[in-house]
């Protein structure tokens, strides 16, 4: 419940504050958001599996974000930023899909 409230509070804060993303963070934020979404779905799935652990959730959330940003940064330095960003998004997308499928199986038995 607190997680849902936190999500709503975050969205409302973003809408109200209307911050501008610093220029240095602009390439990383979208990838970081996708990575965080992946962590969120992973956490949801773990909760339904009954193996949810807040420590694991925190670690996976933060490490996902950091690693994703790092990969993009590295790609930018190597000159393959766009391609690497696409790769990260694809991988995270696949993970989100598989997590969503697992959640679906738990909830709908199908």
């Amino acid at each position: 419940m607190i997680a849902v409230i936190g999500l709503v509070v975050g969205v409302v804060a973003g809408l109200l504050l209307q911050p501008t993303v610093p220029l240095e963070l602009q390439p990383y934020l979208p990838i970081a958001v996708v990575a965080a979404l992946d962590a969120l779905f992973g956490g949801l799935r773990a909760m339904l599996d009954g193996i949810f652990d807040d420590r694991v959730f925190l670690t996976s959330f933060l490490s996902n974000v950091v690693v994703a940003a790092l990969i993009v940064f590295l790609g930018d330095q190597l000159g393959v930023g766009t391609q690497l960003s696409t790769a990260v998004v694809v991988v995270l997308g696949i993970r989100i899909f598989s997590n969503a499928a697992s959640i679906r199986r738990h909830l709908f038995k199908a």
């Binding site: 419940m1 975050g10 969205v11 973003g14 934020l29 958001v33 979404l37 959730f57 925190l58």
Partner: peptide, 25 residues
């Protein structure tokens, strides 16, 4: 109000915030 719940809430808040900011950006 367990530790896990509060932690998840905080992370979700950060995620929602970043999501909205990125969409707006």
């Amino acid at each position: 109000a367990s530790r896990g719940q509060i932690l998840a809430g905080l992370l979700c808040a950060a995620l929602g915030f970043a999501l909205v900011v990125q969409v707006r950006q």
